[in-house]
């Protein structure tokens, strides 16, 4: 470990952080989307007439919720494929 050059160290840290970050970044939106769908389904079961309105709103809300996971994915893609820190060493 003592002889490791900084580029390798940054690569290792990046890979580990990418895995952990994607897992954590996927958990939160998944829970949020599950809750949204749960409530929407409950409302549809209670008032089947409102299904049309709910579907539109639900899709848009899901897109907004999912964008948090997409942001995490984007950061991780930048870290993995276009890491700005690695350019200092190579």
């Amino acid at each position: 470990m003592a002889e490791m050059d900084p580029g390798t160290l940054i690569t290792i840290i990046t890979i580990v952080v990418s895995g952990i970050g994607m897992v954590l970044g996927a958990i939160a939106p998944a829970i949020a989307e599950g809750r949204a769908v749960e409530k929407a389904l409950e409302s549809i079961a209670r008032q089947p007439d409102s299904a049309g309105d709910l579907r539109t709103t639900l899709l848009i809300a899901m897109a907004l919720l999912e964008s948090t996971a997409i942001y995490v994915l984007l950061v991780i893609l930048i870290l993995l494929f276009a890491n700005p820190l690695l350019d200092r060493f190579f």
Partner: peptide, 13 residues
Amino acid sequence: ISLAVRLFGNILS
């Protein structure tokens, strides 16, 4: 920004 990144991230992923 989020409109652009959402489309890009979904398709690229």
